[in-house]
C-alpha cells in the first residue's frame, strides 16, 4: 500500500537517509530497527508529511504523496512522548481528530467511547491528561491516533519512556490491536526485543540505508552483515580473510565453516560465532582460552575468555583456568 522509494535527507549538512527503499503491505506491521540517531524518526516524519525529503518518492496505492500536506494524508502518528494536548482532557484529546473531520457530535461521542474502551480507559474520559501516568498517557495517545481510523499507523518509539514491566504489558496490548485490524503500521524503535515482538517484517536501518529486511526469524538466522550481528547482539563477530572454499583466516587461526561461500580468496570477510556454538574439549576450530570473567545468566554461565570471545556454558569453569573449547564448522557462520 505504501511504497518508499530512494528517500534522501540530510541534517545539518550530514547525510541522514541515503536512499531508503521499502514497502508496507495491507495489514502488515513493519518494524524499523536502528540505533539512535540513525534517522528512523526523520523517516517517519517524512512519511507523515511533517518534513520533506530532499530526494525520493512516496507512493500510496500507486499515487504520489508529494504536495499532499500532513493534515490530508490520513496517517496516524503516535509520538515518542505522546504529545497530548495539555489544554484538553482525555476524551477531548481522543475526539480531536474527529472534530477536525467535522463529524457530527453523536458520532464523535460514540467513537471516542469505543476508542477509550479499546485501550481500557473508559473511566478516564474526563481526567486531565497531565494527571495521568506515563502508561495511561501512552494509551490515550494510541486511542487518539486510532479514533480517526487512519489509513496507516505510525509509532515513533512509543514505549521508550516507560519502565520495563509496563512496556511488556503495553507491547502485548499493541500487538493485539495491530494483529486484529487490517491497518498497516510502521513501528520505529531502537529496542530489538520490542522490534522482534511486534514486527511482521523487520527492517534494519544503518548509515542511512536499509541493510537487511525479512521476518524476525529470518533476520535472526541470517543477519547479513557484521554491523547487524553486532547491533542485534548475536554473538562473537570475527574479522578475517577468505582462503577460498569453506576456510577463513582469522586472528584465531584458520577456521573451518560448514559451507563453501562464493567469495574470492583474499577478500576480507566477517564471521559470526554464536555463544551457544562452543563445545568443550579439543576439536576442529579450537577457540579456548583462560577464563577472564564469569557471569550466571538465567540458565547458563556466560564465560568471557582472555582472547575476547564470549560463550554460554552449562557448567561454571574455574576462574583463571585454561578452558579447552572448539566450535564445530556448523557453528561458524558467514556474515554475507
Amino acid at each position: 500500500m505504501l511504497e518508499v522509494i530512494d528517500l534522501h535527507k540530510s541534517y545539518q549538512g550530514q547525510p541522514l537517509l541515503e536512499g531508503v527503499t521499502f514497502s508496507v503491505a495491507a495489514g502488515e506491521t513493519v518494524c524499523l530497527l536502528g540505533a539512535s540517531g540513525s534517522g528512523k524518526s526523520t523517516l517517519l516524519r517524512i512519511i507523515a508529511g511533517l518534513e520533506e525529503a530532499e530526494r525520493g518518492r512516496l507512493l500510496w496505492e500507486g499515487e504520489d504523496l508529494a504536495g499532499l500536506p500532513a493534515h490530508r494524508r490520513g496517517f496516524g502518528l503516535v509520538f515518542q512522548d505522546y504529545a497530548l494536548f495539555p489544554h484538553l482532557n482525555v476524551a477531548e484529546n481522543v475526539a480531536f481528530g474527529l472534530r477536525m473531520q467535522n463529524r457530527p457530535r453523536h458520532e464523535i461521542e460514540q467513537r471516542v467511547a469505543e476508542a477509550l474502551a479499546g485501550v481500557n480507559l473508559s473511566a478516564f474520559a474526563d481526567r486531565r491528561v497531565t494527571d495521568l501516568s506515563g502508561g495511561e498517557q501512552q494509551r490515550v495517545a494510541l486511542a487518539r491516533a486510532l479514533a480517526t481510523r487512519p489509513r496507516l499507523l505510525m509509532f515513533d518509539e512509543p514505549l521508550g519512556a516507560l519502565d520495563r514491566t509496563l512496556r511488556q504489558d503495553l507491547l502485548d496490548e499493541l500487538r493485539r490491536l495491530l494483529r486484529g485490524g487490517s491497518t498497516p503500521a510502521i513501528y520505529v524503535t531502537h529496542d530489538q526485543e520490542e522490534a522482534f515482538a511486534i514486527a511482521d517484517r523487520l527492517l534494519l536501518l544503518h548509515a542511512g540505508r536499509i541493510v537487511r529486511q525479512g521476518s524476525p526469524a529470518e533476520v535472526w538466522r541470517r543477519p547479513g552483515s557484521a554491523w547487524a550481528a553486532r547491533f542485534l547482539g548475536l554473538g562473537n563477530v570475527l574479522a578475517g580473510r577468505a582462503l577460498g572454499g569453506a576456510r577463513v583466516e582469522t586472528a584465531f587461526g584458520v577456521l573451518e565453516t560448514a559451507q563453501a561461500a562464493d567469495v574470492p580468496a583474499g577478500q576480507p570477510v566477517s564471521l559470526l560465532i554464536r555463544p551457544g556454538a562452543a563445545r568443550p574439549g579439543e576439536g576442529v576450530n579450537p577457540l579456548g582460552g583462560r577464563v577472564a570473567d564469569l557471569l550466571f545468566q538465567n540458565e547458563h554461565y556466560r564465560v568471557t575468555l582472555d582472547n575476547g570471545l564470549t560463550f554460554h556454558l552449562d557448567e561454571a569453569p574455574p576462574r583463571g583456568a585454561f578452558l579447552a573449547l572448539h566450535v564445530p564448522p556448523e557453528g561458524v557462520e558467514w556474515l554475507l
Partner: peptide, 16 residues
C-alpha cells in the same frame, strides 16, 4: 510536536 500531532490528526494550518 503538539502542533505536529494536530496536523497528523487532520488539522490544517489555521485549525492548528
Amino acid at each position: 510536536r503538539l502542533e505536529q500531532a494536530a496536523c497528523t490528526l487532520g488539522a490544517g494550518p489555521r485549525r492548528v
